[in-house]
Simulated scan of single mutants.
Amino acid sequence: MEIDPRLIPILQENTQAFGNVQVLAADFLELSLREFGKELLLVGNLPYAITSEVLLKLIREREAVARAVFTVQWEVGEKLVAPPGPKVNRLGVHLRAYFQVELLRKISRTVFFPPPEVDGALVRIVRLSEPRISVPEEIFERTLALVFGHRRKTLRQALAAHFPPALADKILAELGLDPRVRGEALDLEDWDRLARRLSPYLSVAQDLSPR
């Protein structure tokens, strides 16, 4: 699949000997993966500028995807597999709720043409038989947005930016979460518990703008 029309003839010429290869002139982000069946294997050298959009699409349409092997920016690959700590990001937590993610190897920038300014990473993403979370995706995603929207703030500060401080204190105390830590310190079980507890307050219509 290629969006650049200049590359289509080149790809067609290079793959014409393979009867099981079809070159599609299309925008991956605009297609429905479900149209191609289930248990898909996706392989791609992702443009670094749209990596997040591609991975979010993978999450949204995960029923159609069995696994994927992608080349991404090295720093992104590190964040996708990072344990709780300063390298964790919202996308990595979201992705690992539904997929097993492995960082396979670093790829030198010198093997690309033209060479980018950073090294690449080869990552393998395999859909889990069951999600690691128990809440609906919408609630989980809104919880991530609420906390990571205040990345440099503590959990209490992040929650108190949207809810009455007394309620924020009550929720964190009930869950046994340290109000002084940041969201990056939580593991997936913590995120799931927090999302379940916040679920009554995270209706679709609720405005998550800071108070």
Score class of each variant (00 low, 15 high):
Gly183Leu: 01
Ala121Asp: 06
Ser199Gln: 14
Leu186His: 03
Val65Tyr: 07
Ile107Pro: 11
Pro164Gln: 02
Arg109Val: 12
Leu144Thr: 01
Ser134Cys: 03
Leu7Asp: 06
Ala166His: 15
Ile50Lys: 02
Val81Glu: 04
Ala195Tyr: 03
Arg152Cys: 10
Glu78Ala: 03
Arg90Leu: 11
Asp4His: 13
Leu198Phe: 02
Gln12Trp: 05
Pro131Ser: 02
Gln16Asn: 15
Asn14Cys: 12
Ile3Leu: 14
Val181Gln: 11
Leu198His: 05
Leu91Ile: 04
Glu13Gly: 08
Arg109Asn: 09
Val21Glu: 03
Arg60Lys: 10
Ala66Cys: 09
Val181Arg: 12
Leu91Gly: 01
Val72Ser: 01
Ser52Gly: 09
Leu33Gln: 11
Ile10Val: 06
Lys79Arg: 15
Asp119His: 06
Ala68Ile: 10
Val21Gln: 01
Asp190Ala: 02
Gln16Ile: 15
Trp191Ala: 04
Asp190Gly: 02
Leu155Asp: 01
Glu138Asp: 12
Arg156Ser: 12
Thr51Met: 03
Ser209Lys: 12
Leu172Arg: 04
Arg109Ser: 11
Leu41Pro: 15
Arg156Asn: 13
Gly176Trp: 01
Phe99Ser: 01
Thr51Trp: 05
Glu184Asp: 05
Glu141Phe: 15
Val126Arg: 06
Arg124Tyr: 07
Leu202Cys: 04
Val54Met: 08
Ile10Leu: 05
Glu53Ala: 15
His162Asp: 04
Leu146Asn: 00
Leu104Glu: 04
Leu188Thr: 01
Leu103Val: 06
Thr15Met: 07
Leu202Tyr: 03
Ser134Val: 10
Ser129Arg: 06
Pro115Ala: 00
Pro179Trp: 02
Ala68Asn: 04
Pro5Ala: 08
Leu80Ser: 02
Arg6Glu: 15
Pro179Met: 00
Arg180Pro: 05
Leu128Pro: 07
Ala205Leu: 14
Ala173Leu: 05
Arg34Gln: 14
Glu75Thr: 09
Ile50Thr: 00
Lys106Ser: 11
Ala82His: 11
Leu177Asn: 03
Leu155Asn: 00
Leu41Lys: 15
Leu104Met: 04
Tyr98Asn: 04
Gln16Trp: 15
Ser203Met: 11
Ala49Ser: 13
Gly44Trp: 02
Leu31Cys: 09
Leu104Trp: 01
Asp190Thr: 00
Leu55Lys: 05
Leu128Thr: 02
Ala195Val: 03
Ala205His: 15
Asp4Ala: 12
Phe28His: 12
Pro9Trp: 08
Pro86Leu: 03
Arg67His: 13
Glu102Met: 10
Asn14Ile: 14
Trp74Ser: 09
Asp192Lys: 01
Val111Met: 03
